[in-house]
């Protein structure tokens, strides 16, 4: 009951905010387009960072191929709307105009997420046998393979880039999916399955000895993480209306890693914070764009020295605010 209320409340709030920002709620007031775009890109970054944190921060498997899965989601969902959009609209003509757009976007995102998940499965099964640096290099390689593969598909524009994607995503959809990502990841991590992921991060041999199917757990978390990156990519394409493989180089993967390292590996709140901080810094330093990467590197070095666990470490939002939920201690068993 409480969660149903919370869900509909969040959706309504996002809907109203979206209307307010785009200027359709109060005439004469609208968010400057530049700020709105930065906000939307921040939302996409949140999706990417939180999903990558599931695999890098909680499961402890260092993957640097996240941009590859984002690219699959972006291109697959863009292809769905561009190639099948008209037919899809005709089939759903009984719906009002905005609902038709929404349904089309959801369908496109589902296809993108599914394809990214399938790719995640086929990349994860062989690579997750490796550990540490080896896993990092293999995922980096797969990320680049995916990018170059897409670069050579002519129907999605190849090296010209993919243009003509309708603008179906907006503030509402991006933050709706950002909220869904946060909820899914935090519930996953708190579940019994999530505990096996953290156990794998802490000591893989002991986890296996405690009956955890470590390969299965790692692959599931990788697939889930890839699917969410695919959704992030799909929103990215439908927001900017143009895609180019240059947006998905390994630099993009590194950027997502910077977000979660700054925020704290193994903290969802930290990832959200890191994603926002990252885009705020990128935009804030636009005037010094020559030196931006230098400043980023300096920032990372300072954080690694002063606070190697990231800004929040493993702590979450509710550690500082929310009530501490204490479960009543059950009555101890009688020992003979």
């Amino acid at each position: 009951m409480r969660s149903a209320l919370l869900t509909s409340g969040t959706v309504a709030l996002l809907f109203v905010l979206n209307a307010l920002f785009t200027g359709s709620l109060v005439s004469g007031f609208a968010m400057p387009p530049y700020i709105l775009q930065v906000l939307c890109l921040a939302g996409i970054n949140i999706i990417l960072a939180v999903s990558l944190n599931l695999i890098n921060g909680f499961t402890g498997q260092f993957s640097i191929g996240h941009a590859g899965f984002m690219a699959i989601g972006a291109y697959a969902s863009a292809y769905v709307t561009v190639a099948w959009g008209d037919r899809f609209r005709a089939a759903t003509s009984f719906l009002p105009e905005f609902a038709r757009d929404g349904v089309l976007l959801l369908f496109a995102l589902a296809v993108g997420a599914l394809l990214a998940a399938i790719a995640g499965f086929f990349v994860g099964v062989p690579s997750l046998r490796l550990r540490g640096d080896y896993l990092a290099i293999v995922t980096l390689g797969f990320g680049e393979i995916i990018r170059v593969f897409i670069l050579n598909i002519d129907v999605v524009g190849g090296a010209r880039g993919y243009s003509g994607i309708p603008k179906l995503a907006n503030f509402f959809w991006i933050y709706l999916f950002a909220a869904i990502t946060v909820v899914v990841v935090s519930r996953t991590v708190k579940s019994s399955f999530g505990r096996t992921l953290i156990a794998i991060r802490e000591d893989e041999i002991a986890a296996e000895a405690m009956g955890v199917d470590t390969t299965r757990s790692k692959v599931i978390s990788f697939v889930l993480s890839s699917a969410m990156a695919g959704i992030g990519g799909g929103l990215f394409g439908h927001y900017l209306m143009y895609l180019h493989t240059n947006s998905f180089t390994f630099i993009k993967s590194i950027e997502i890693i910077i977000m979660i390292v700054i925020g704290g590996l193994g903290s969802i709140t930290g990832s959200v914070l890191g994603a926002i901080l990252f885009i705020a810094l990128t935009e804030g330093l636009r005037e010094f764009s020559q030196y931006r990467m230098v400043l980023f590197s300096l920032l990372l070095i300072v954080i690694m020295i002063v606070r190697p666990q990231g800004i929040l470490g493993h702590l979450e939002f509710r550690h500082f605010f929310g009530r501490r939920r204490r479960l009543a201690a059950p009555t101890p068993p009688v020992i003979p």
Binding site: S192, F193, R195, T196, I198, A199, R201, E202, D203, I205, A206, A207, A209, M210, G211, V212, H314
Partner: peptide
Amino acid sequence: RLFGDMTVLDNVKVAFH
């Protein structure tokens, strides 16, 4: 070989999985 960063309770819970 405990799961050092998990709580004592969660260490046991993992084994119930």
